[in-house]
């Protein structure tokens, strides 16, 4: 059995409909009307130990709701979740000992006391033996540069520093699985880099399984081997990230800078599998299908007509691929 098994998961919220204006509002107090809203609609997947999964989708697609059900905060309306064979809401405390949770917009540390005091409380909370606690603390301090932060109260730290401490806190008890809900939201590139390096290391060296939601595709590309894309509460795509790239990234673009593109433009020359576009008088853009032609052929073809000054080749990154899948431009 996989570490995380999710079957036909559904979460519905009841929302009260309140009318507009005072008259409607008063009427609805006496006759409340509810609408049900399906935040998560029949989702199934399974995740093996040591996997790193990017759980992505637009705002309001049901990402956080899924994470909250996986971590036992919310009870599913229907369907089942098994984490290491346990139902998180039924065996909450046992399950919680083996997980770590990081939420980008919420800190779990104590505002008024130095970070190290919060860590010590977590040590008690998770019953971490002294030697493991010390070893982890030392290692995390080094990777994420916490040395100067440990003895400062949380309220005096910047957002990035606070997040680094929160992430370290989530790993102190050697969790089997860590859920990261937008861990890099609002952070600068240095903080993001340190956090990514740290998570990657935990995944590589300790085989910690993690599920990460993020709108930053650099997070996903650097950290995850697999993505699950959801939209409107349903799974749209669940696959290996390299496979997704190969499957959907068949079109590439070459941009030529030339003396003058007139020679090609006027001749209306064409090559099968390539579409040319002429911008101003000195640029040529060629979009080609990687299955039909290779880059060298395109370059050779263009150079027959115009002397080339410069070339840039761009493939689509995973972000554009995802956008295209979501908005059906494929």
């Amino acid at each position: 059995m996989a570490l995380i098994e999710v079957e036909n998961l559904v979460k519905e919220y009841k929302r009260k409909i309140s009318g507009e204006g005072i008259k409607d509002a008063l009427y609805h107090i006496l006759h409340p009307v509810y609408e049900t809203f399906r935040a998560v609609d029949d989702i199934s997947f399974s995740i093996e130990k040591g996997e790193s999964v990017g759980y992505i989708g637009p705002n309001g697609s049901g990402k956080s709701t899924t994470i909250k059900m996986l971590t036992g905060i919310l009870t599913p309306t229907a369907g089942s979740i098994h984490i290491n064979g346990r139902i998180p809401t039924k065996e909450r405390i046992k399950n919680n000992r083996e997980i770590g949770v990081v939420t980008g917009n919420r800190s779990t540390l104590y505002w008024d006391v130095p970070i190290i005091e919060s860590f010590r409380l977590f040590q008690k909370l998770y019953e971490v033996p002294d030697n493991i606690f010390r070893k982890n603390l030392e290692e995390f301090t080094e990777i994420m540069g916490l040395e100067s932060l440990l003895h400062v109260p949380e309220r005096q730290l910047s957002l990035g520093q606070r997040m680094r401490c929160n992430i370290a806190a989530a790993f102190l008890h050697n969790p089997k699985t860590v859920y990261l809900d937008e861990p890099t939201i609002g952070l600068d590139s240095e903080s993001k880099r340190r956090i990514r390096t740290f998570i990657k290391k935990m995944n590589d060296e300790r085989d910690t399984t993690f599920i990460i939601t993020s709108h930053d595709f650099q997070d996903i590309e650097m950290l995850c081997r697999r993505i699950i894309l959801i939209n409107h509460g349903k799974v749209v795509l669940d696959n290996d990230i390299e496979k997704v790239r190969k499957d959907f990234d068949q079109k590439k673009k070459v941009r030529f800078e030339v003396e003058n593109n007139y020679a090609m433009k006027s001749g209306e020359h064409c090559l099968p599998g390539v579409s040319f576009q002429y911008i101003d008088s000195y640029l040529i853009e060629a979009e080609y299908n990687t299955e039909e032609v290779d880059a060298m052929t395109v370059v050779g073809f263009v150079s027959k007509y115009c002397p080339i000054k410069d070339i840039t080749i761009t493939g689509r990154d995973i972000e554009t691929i995802v956008q295209d899948i979501l908005y059906k431009r494929l």
């Binding site: 905060i73 909450r92 405390i93 919680n96 939420t103 919420r106 909370l125």
Partner: peptide
């Protein structure tokens, strides 16, 4: 503020 979320993911009542 949804603060019970944090408590619910920890191994104590």
């Amino acid at each position: 503020k949804g603060k019970f979320d944090t408590y619910l993911t920890r191994p104590a009542p």
